[in-house]
């Protein structure tokens, strides 16, 4: 017997927005879990990459409150291994951008510790600000 999940309009809108921004067909994800197994940041995450994809598939915008999308290091380990050819790093980026484009920064760059500011190379500051500020 086939069970059908009915997703509300609001949720469908969220899914559509994420698909548009990421350019990925998120409904293709069959929840195999390879991404979660490859992700080096998974031990620190509150939800795994698979769970993140599932929440987006169901249009649950609460996924935007997760820590996971901010812990993504854009390393593309998931990308090269996904058997459906999906690029999760782009989904995570889309979720981050949906917050950042409202000019809501994820970190306060004026409050970075002084001793860190003395050590950090430009490459760290530039990439960090690109991912965490809008």
């Amino acid at each position: 017997m086939i069970k059908k999940l009915k997703i509300s309009n609001k949720n469908q809108e969220f899914l559509a927005k994420v698909e548009e921004l990421s350019g990925e067909i998120i409904t293709k994800c069959d929840q195999c879990g390879i991404c979660s197994g490859s992700c080096p940041m998974v031990p620190e995450m509150d939800i795994t990459p698979s769970q993140m994809m599932r929440m987006v598939q169901l249009g649950e915008s609460e996924v935007m409150e997760s820590k996971a999308m901010w812990l993504c290091a854009s390393c593309f380990a998931c990308t090269v291994r996904c058997p459906r050819g999906l690029d999760l790093s782009r989904v995570a980026e889309a979720l981050r951008q949906m917050k950042l484009r409202k000019a809501i920064d994820h970190i306060d760059i004026k409050k970075l510790p002084e001793d860190e500011m003395e050590r950090l190379p430009q490459i760290a500051l530039i990439s960090g600000m690109r991912k965490f500020t809008g």
């Binding site: 970075l112 500011m117 950090l120 430009q122």
Partner: peptide
């Protein structure tokens, strides 16, 4: 790094 310390937005 002194420039970045006072003007971290420079990295943007």
């Amino acid at each position: 790094n002194v420039l970045f310390r006072y003007y971290p937005e420079l990295a943007r």
